[in-house]
């Protein structure tokens, strides 16, 4: 199992390197202008050279993402718990949630701007509104899918609703919850950047917008690289936490794969 994993990781890393090498070679061979597609080496150079200028924007994007994420998780857990525990709430609230989640979030940014002006607030709110949905769905599903037979066993023992929630519902929901966290953090990130792009004077999204209107193409790509990097880091961080905390949910598969 471990062996297989390492091999897989090496292949993935190799593929990424190959992608950049081909890109570099393609640009060199075709004499492509760096106003259209800069070489990865140029992008890296720009990124390092401009790093002192970029850093505050990175922090801005990260902080709006995380604030939106934390608020989104809090709201999502609360709503998910209510919906998951009560069958009535589950049936009544679901259509509304589905409706809400299918609105393209870029469409709500102008509304947030209208209400709160441009800047950090709409970014946080956009991040929140995108990321809370997967949390709600996963918490609600986790809570609503307790095995009925087990519930019967516990009820016959005299367990209260709270006992069942505490001993069975919550632990069962943990894998769903942590799986949704890593999705939600990526969503929050997308939301924050989206809002910065449209309506802010700070953040990586804004840097890219400004650079684009100045035809500073290497800087646009530098922003893109930073976003990709941050997105991956956030996702990985939460996958790692997930693996640590809810190992029981995957351990079975590990055993099978050995």
């Amino acid at each position: 199992m471990g062996q297989l994993n390492l091999k897989q990781k090496l292949w993935s890393a190799g593929l990424i390197v190959l992608f950049f090498v081909l890109w570099e070679l393609f640009c060199l061979a075709s004499g492509m202008s760096d106003l259209v597609l800069p070489r990865p080496s140029q992008v890296m150079e720009t990124m390092i050279r401009r790093f002192p200028v970029l850093w505050p924007h990175i922090l801005q994007t990260l902080s709006t993402t995380m604030i939106g994420f934390v608020l989104g998780v809090a709201l999502g857990v609360l709503l998910g718990a209510v919906i998951g525990v009560s069958k009535v709430a589950y049936d009544t609230a679901y259509p509304l949630l589905i409706g809400f989640s299918s609105i393209p979030k870029v469409a709500v940014v102008p509304i947030f701007v209208l209400w709160f002006g441009s800047g950090s607030v709409p970014a946080v709110l956009t991040a929140l509104s995108i990321c809370f949905f997967p949390i709600v769905v996963n918490i609600a599903t986790g809570l609503a899918t307790t095995e009925p037979e087990l519930e019967d066993v516990l009820k016959a023992l005299g367990a209260s609703k709270f006992d069942i929630l505490w001993n069975v519902g919550l632990p069962r929901t943990m894998p769903f919850f942590f799986a949704s966290l890593k999705v939600a953090v990526s969503y929050a990130f997308v939301g924050a950047v989206l809002s910065e792009t449209v309506a802010s004077n700070r953040g990586i999204g804004n840097v890219m917008m400004t650079a684009s209107s100045n035809f500073d193409v290497p800087l646009v790509f530098a922003g893109l690289f930073i976003l990709a990097f941050l997105g991956v880091v956030l996702y990985l961080a939460f996958s790692l936490i997930e693996g640590r905390i809810t190992g029981w949910a995957t351990r079975k598969n590990d055993l099978v794969a050995t």
């Binding site: 095995e147 037979e149 087990l150 019967d152 066993v153 016959a156 023992l157 005299g158 069975v168 632990p171 069962r172 943990m174 029981w248 949910a249 079975k252």
Partner: peptide, 15 residues
């Protein structure tokens, strides 16, 4: 009543 119950399906908690 503290009734003890068991079904055909063992329903052990996996964690």
């Amino acid at each position: 009543l503290r009734i003890g119950m068991a079904f055909q399906n063992p329903t052990m908690l996996p964690w």
